[in-house]
């Protein structure tokens, strides 16, 4: 309950800041950047897997949000709105860099899961999870990050990424299936480390 009311309080002050920006107090946007930039960075990093790319995505996200603040609709929280801008920009960054060139179909038809020998080389949790995330297509990676880390509903992700709900669901399902394939043997080890 405390968290919910804290979130609600934050959304109210976000709305107040947005109102001030729209009515001409441009510096009120600083409050929104202060409040959300670090979480946007974490999301951008989870999608791009690169600190430098994530920093650029954060910069561009807030620039775009500042320019388009009049388009913000309060049906979604500012945090959700800014997260979806960041997710789309992170996707664009990856497409431009052609880091992920495989399509969903291609990945599905090939056995992309690395063998035990390769996994054994990267015992660090971060490396293994990154290895698993790299098996996902761009769409799967973004949909999964928004669903898992940002807590957006399938419906919201579909709307924001311009996909059908079914396509979004399938992206999340395929992402989980691929993660399971790679991470399955490591889950117990991770839990020991977390504890």
């Amino acid at each position: 309950m405390a968290v919910t009311s804290l979130n609600r309080g934050m959304e109210e002050t976000d709305l107040a800041a947005i109102g001030r920006v729209i009515t001409g107090d441009r510096d009120a946007f600083a409050l929104l950047v202060e409040r959300h930039s670090r979480s946007v960075f974490r999301l951008a990093f989870r999608i791009t897997g690169s600190e430098a790319d994530a920093d650029e995505v954060v910069q561009e996200t807030f620039l775009r949000a500042f320019r388009q603040i009049h388009r913000y609709e309060s049906r979604a929280s500012f945090a959700t709105w800014i997260s979806t801008i960041a997710a789309n920009l992170a996707l664009d960054t990856l497409r431009k860099r052609k880091r992920w060139v495989a399509t969903d179909e291609h990945i599905d038809k090939t056995d992309a899961a690395p063998g035990p020998a390769r996994l054994a080389e990267s015992r660090r949790i971060g490396d293994v999870i990154e290895t698993a995330m790299n098996q996902l297509s761009l769409q799967e990676r973004t949909a999964f990050a928004l669903r898992h880390y940002e807590g957006l509903s399938i419906e919201a992700i579909a709307r924001e990424l311009g996909l059908s709900e079914n396509a979004t669901k399938q992206s999340v399902f395929r992402a989980v299936a691929k993660l399971r394939r790679v991470l399955g043997p490591w889950v117990g080890v991770f839990l020991l480390c977390i504890i």
Binding site: S37, R38, F41, R42, F45, R46, E51, I125, G126, I129, E130, H148, V176, L179, R180, L183, G184, W186, V187, G188, F190, L191, C193, I194
Partner: peptide, 14 residues
């Protein structure tokens, strides 16, 4: 267990 383990991935902070 699988999906909870995804939260163990270290993410750099600012």
């Amino acid at each position: 267990r699988l999906l909870n383990s995804m939260d163990a991935a270290p993410v750099p902070d600012r």
